[in-house]
């Protein structure tokens, strides 16, 4: 699989720490983070709530500046948000004054692509998230899962180098969540996208990731990184029966133990 064979480094986080606020009232959110994201990887980040997962994503996205250390993208230091790093928020930030089509076209339009190309891209990614035919609807007419799919299509329409997702399925019901997990796995496989995905659900991480990063409680440090392959197995077999095998339980229990040791 392409994800395994070429290990081209995309994002490199070096000795990064992040502190919110000034002196007395400051919170150390992240401590000494070192992480490399390679092209085509699906990285899931796990950790107790409040451990700094969102903060880590915001540093990569360029929304906040690390207090020390740095985030490099293809050798260049990240300085503010740009379209090479697409972001999907937990609650979709679709623009209600635009139709689904206009939302998906927003990125390509901002980059002044030719009209015909914008239309092709829009059609392609709406189809990719199974929403062809909904283009003329307004986003508030859609269900939660459909909204999140529009948000994903909108980000993909820019062909970003990496897609950063902050608990994107956290607000969805179990059934929708499972469909969304299959959808994002298929998109990742078909388009060879690089995905950085935050979740607090161990199963979700193991069903999607090829690397699962486990963080400590605040201040967030990386405790352990697991290389896993369940997502490829699920993709090939077309069902998630792998979760009933021994390897899966072993990894899951180890991660659970780490996280539980961090709470209390």
């Amino acid at each position: 699989m392409s994800a395994q064979t070429n290990k081209e480094s995309l994002i490199k986080i070096e000795n990064m720490s992040l502190e919110y606020g000034e002196s007395i009232n400051s919170t150390l959110a992240l401590k000494n983070i070192n992480l490399e994201i390679n092209k085509g990887e699906f990285i899931c980040v796990l950790g107790p709530s409040g451990c700094g997962k969102s903060s880590l994503l915001k540093c990569i996205a360029g929304y906040v500046k690390p207090t020390s250390g740095r985030v490099l993208m293809q050798g260049k230091e990240v300085d503010g948000p740009d379209w090479h790093r697409g972001v999907v928020f937990q609650s979709p930030t679709l623009y209600p004054w635009m139709t689904v089509n206009e939302n998906v076209e927003f990125g390509p339009k901002m980059r002044d692509l030719p009209k015909t190309e914008i239309k092709e891209i829009r059609e392609f990614f709406l189809d990719e998230v199974n929403l062809s035919g909904f283009g003329e609807n307004y986003t508030f007419e859609l269900s939660g899962g459909m909204k999140q799919r529009v948000a994903i299509a909108r980000v993909l329409a820019n062909y970003p180098q990496v897609v950063l997702m902050d608990e994107p399925f956290g607000a969805l019901d179990a059934l929708t969540r499972e469909n969304m997990q299959n959808l994002i796995r298929n998109i990742w496989k078909e388009n060879n996208t690089t995905i950085f995905f935050i979740t607090h659900d161990v199963d979700e991480a193991l069903l999607l990731a090829n690397r699962a990063v486990v963080m400590s409680k605040q201040p967030g440090e990386i405790i352990k990184i697991f290389n896993v392959d369940f997502t490829n197995q699920i993709f090939e077999k077309g069902s998630k029966e792998v979760i009933y095998n021994e390897d899966y339980f072993e990894v899951k229990n180890e991660i659970m133990d780490i996280i539980h040791s961090q709470i209390d």
């Binding site: 740009d82 379209w83 697409g86 972001v87 928020f89 623009y95 927003f106």
Partner: peptide, 29 residues
């Protein structure tokens, strides 16, 4: 204004001017 509107627009490639006219103005209507 919901800051996530502005941040998502910036991450989609919108420049300051676009953020103002396409996001801030309509969101404030």
């Amino acid at each position: 204004l919901n800051q996530d509107f502005v941040l998502s627009a910036r991450s989609l490639g919108a420049a300051q001017k676009d953020v103002f006219f396409k996001i801030v103005l309509p969101a404030s209507l």
